[in-house]
């Protein structure tokens, strides 16, 4: 139960950064933290006490594996997280080039 609660705390920390921080880089870090929290929660849900990683090493013997399905789902999600983070960072860099600040309250000229 404690690992799940730690994941939820990390999720709330990331959301705090997104909602209350004014610096764009901090907001992107908040997105990354939320993504880590969800990935970690999935991996924790699939964990089985005393089991081994889901890789078959000995044929014909029944081995005790952890749940491979959450791991398969998270595997692609991690890579996509990197791609979206890179996209957000590219936006942030262009915004800085134009407005010379990362402060979202200073970027008011976006309006028409």
């Amino acid at each position: 139960m404690v690992p799940f609660i730690a994941c939820l705390l990390l999720f709330l920390l990331g959301l705090y950064a997104i909602v209350l921080k004014r610096n764009i880089i901090k907001i992107i870090i908040g997105f990354s933290l939320m993504e880590y929290a969800v990935n970690l929660l999935f991996a924790f849900i699939g964990f089985k006490q005393g089991a081994i990683a889901p890789i078959i090493t000995r044929l014909g013997m029944t081995q005790d594996f952890v749940d491979p399905l959450p791991q398969a789902l998270v595997l692609t999600s991690i890579v996509i997280g990197l791609a979206t983070t890179a996209l957000m960072l590219a936006f942030a860099m262009r915004i800085y080039e134009k407005y010379h600040t990362f402060d979202i309250t200073e970027i008011r000229r976006l309006r028409g």
């Binding site: 964990f47 081994i52 990683a53 791991q71 998270v74 991690i78 890579v79 990197l82």
Partner: peptide, 18 residues
């Protein structure tokens, strides 16, 4: 620690890039 070596490998590579 939760027996997900594939995820650990991908996470390390992705984290370095990030």
């Amino acid at each position: 620690l939760v027996q997900a070596p594939d995820l650990a490998i991908v996470q390390i590579v992705v984290e370095i890039l990030a």
